[in-house]
Design a binder for these strands. Structure first.
Lengths: 189, 189
DNA sequence: CCTACCGATCGGTAGG
DNA sequence: CCTACCGATCGGTAGG
């Protein structure tokens, strides 16, 4: 199925926002890359801000759907964490430009979209943390500070896209295994 | 000792670059915050870019000095990693604006400063990785992929400043202990 | 989808 | 350290 011009604009914008940042990417940069004049972009989109908010809220939605599925699985907290690691890795591999915006560019959202994004991120973190706490209560996870543990895992997963784009020769199952090992079981012999 | 106007400008710029991003911070924003007209800033600094490159290369330097000291200590690799965790935590607590630039704004560096920064970062990562590899060879660290391990630790440490600024009530020794525990020994019971 | 153009704002300079 | 101002560029619109 051939993508629409609108889809091409969004995809190209994601790439440029990632490379240069939202503020440093001009509508003329975007137009050139898409192959039209800047004014013509506005036949397909409403504003530069609409592009950013659509990209970010779509990506956030995917994570919300993903964590919902994980929560509904009847498995132990450790396995749920492994499934979330897998979710982040797959998103970063398949959709790395959008993921980079989630990590780096969300602060340029304005008004409602800014609030909406922050609410969803907060909700996601709360639900991830609940899984960690359940693991601690069930004796599967050590009695660590759950905020520190959550932050540590999420930092790694959120930056995974940047690391992955410089690497190659590691398969996805191998990545899932390596990251689960290190994030859950640690480094020490 | 009273700080010079130049020092005040740099400190204020670091704060604004962190809050809004380099590109989204105008020299008029900065001037207002410092309490002068935009044109007057140029009696103290050469350019907006000079501010960014000075802030970033100074911070990078501190990390280079820090890792050199750690390398020269005659302790086992696990302790060296703990000392690096401590280095990052102290830098983030004492100098969080500059650290945020290292994590988020370095891509807006231009020309020589851009290259210089990337070289130092690469060197730092190489030396950190050598410590991990030494730990593996000495049987103190599991046979994990050292790139994955390095990236996982550094992601957490680089984003620590953002997490820390939202938290309180945890002392620095407690933070060092918690992060060492989680990053080195893992979560699983 | 283009040409032509708008008002606003940018980093920075001249001159005092 | 200020007033006054420069050329460049920004996001976006009018009109076809």
């Amino acid at each position: 199925m051939k993508p629409t011009k609108r889809q091409i604009i969004f995809k190209t914008a994601a790439k440029l926002f990632r490379e240069k940042g939202y503020k440093a990417t001009s509508m003329r940069d975007l137009a050139k890359e898409v192959g039209m004049e800047a004014a013509s972009l506005y036949n397909h989109i409403q504003s530069k801000q609409e592009i950013l908010s659509t990209l970010l809220l779509d990506a956030a939605k995917t994570f919300m759907v993903g964590i919902k599925e994980v929560e509904e699985n009847n498995v132990c907290p450790i396995h749920k964490i492994e499934q979330l690691i897998s979710l982040h890795i797959h998103m970063a591999v398949e959709n790395s430009d959008a993921i980079s915006l989630i990590t780096q560019e969300w602060r340029h959202l304005e008004g409602n979209a800014f609030q909406e994004f922050k609410n969803q991120r907060k909700d996601y973190e709360k639900r991830f943390k609940s899984i960690l706490i359940a693991g601690i209560e069930q004796g599967k996870i050590k009695k660590v500070n759950p905020d520190v543990a959550l932050f540590s895992i999420l930092s790694t997963l959120r930056w995974f896209y940047a690391w992955y784009s410089k690497k190659d020769g590691i398969s996805i199952p191998e990545l899932e295994q390596q990251f689960s090992e290190i994030l859950i079981k640690g480094l020490q012999q």
